[in-house]
């Protein structure tokens, strides 16, 4: 059983809970290889995906994870701005809870929105990304993938490259990986590194080659094109030249370095196609693992314990 009622972030999640989720995901991954990808574990369990931000991958991943477990998954999409004009987030969520929903997955552009919801709801809340704060299931699937490929987390060097300032993926990865004993470094242009990021227990670099030197894992973040318009860097061309991950820069890393990307990729900008498609790339497997990890999270937060080999 998990100690936590909600999954709001990896900063507050205990190490034991992280390991339980990862172990459970391992069992669920097996289901994804079956012809009939469905077990009755969460039959009759209504789950809502409450998405206030456009998302295809994460929403689909949660939806499939729920369906593979036989839960009834409903999607609710709304733009945060329309909520500002009308019904509040709290009222929306309480309404949904009153319909009998037993678990809420929320994606919201504002940090802390899932915490606010958790304070106001009796049912478990899963954070599927809140602004630049946390994206715990993405980090869990990243960590799951690393553990699967490398057999361990402790002692590995993980470099996270790109727009750290606006990245919930970076923050969740930092908390999760450092709790499990990895060394984490972050790198990007100085304007995209948050001030005082070192206080999270990482080293920060603006020189990408230094950051990736001897790395076991390089996790490349998506650069959002609108950041350039806000004056955070001069051009995509310059970004690709100085901060993009290509095979030349990767020569600094360990030969068996894992290449990760949370997607969707901007090929030729933060990552070259050559790197994205190299044998060291785990980008597609991350997506598969994402479903397994989300199955584990949905199952455990619904009150499930350790599972048998059938998956229920």
């Amino acid at each position: 059983m998990l100690k936590t009622k909600n999954l709001l972030g990896l900063r507050e999640l205990e190490k034991d809970d992280i390991n339980l989720i990862l172990d459970t995901a391992e069992s669920f991954k097996e289901i994804l290889k079956r012809d009939i990808k469905k077990v009755p574990t969460l039959r009759g369990k209504p789950i809502v995906n409450l998405f206030f931000e456009p998302s295809t991958r994460t929403r689909t991943s949660f939806e499939l994870a729920g369906k593979y477990l036989s839960a009834d998954v409903v999607n609710f999409s709304k733009s945060a701005s329309s909520v500002a004009k009308g019904e509040t987030l709290k009222d929306t969520a309480i309404t949904i809870q009153s319909m009998g929903v037993e678990l809420v997955v929320i994606r919201h552009p504002m940090p802390g929105a899932p915490h606010y919801l958790a304070q106001n709801l009796a049912i478990p809340v899963i954070n599927a990304g809140d602004g630049a704060h946390e994206h715990p299931t993405q980090a869990l699937l990243d960590i799951f993938t690393i553990r699967e490929k490398k057999g361990r987390i402790k002692g590995l060097k993980v470099a996270i490259i790109g727009d750290i300032l606006h990245s919930r993926v970076a923050r969740s990865n930092i908390w999760g990986l450092t709790k499990l004993g990895a060394e984490v470094v972050v790198a990007g242009p100085s304007t995209l590194l948050p001030p005082k990021i070192e206080t999270l227990g990482v080293k920060a670099y603006t020189d990408i080659e230094k950051a990736v030197k001897d790395a076991d894992v390089v996790n490349v973040l998506r650069i959002q094109l609108e950041r350039q318009k806000k004056g955070l860097f001069p051009s995509l061309r310059e970004y690709a030249m100085y901060f993009g991950i290509n095979s030349r820069r990767l020569n600094q890393a360990k030969p068996d370095v894992l290449i990760m990307h949370p997607g969707p990729m901007n090929r030729g900008i933060e990552i070259s196609s050559e790197v994205a498609e190299s044998p060291n790339s785990t980008i597609n497997e991350q997506v598969t693992n994402g479903v397994a990890v989300r199955m584990a999270v949905l199952y455990l937060l619904s009150g499930g314990g350790k599972i048998d080999e059938k998956g229920y």
Partner: peptide
């Protein structure tokens, strides 16, 4: 405030 807490919470900082 822009500082340690904004780095952790991802809320936008005012320097």
């Amino acid at each position: 405030n822009e500082g340690r807490v904004s780095a952790v919470l991802g809320l936008k900082g005012i320097p």
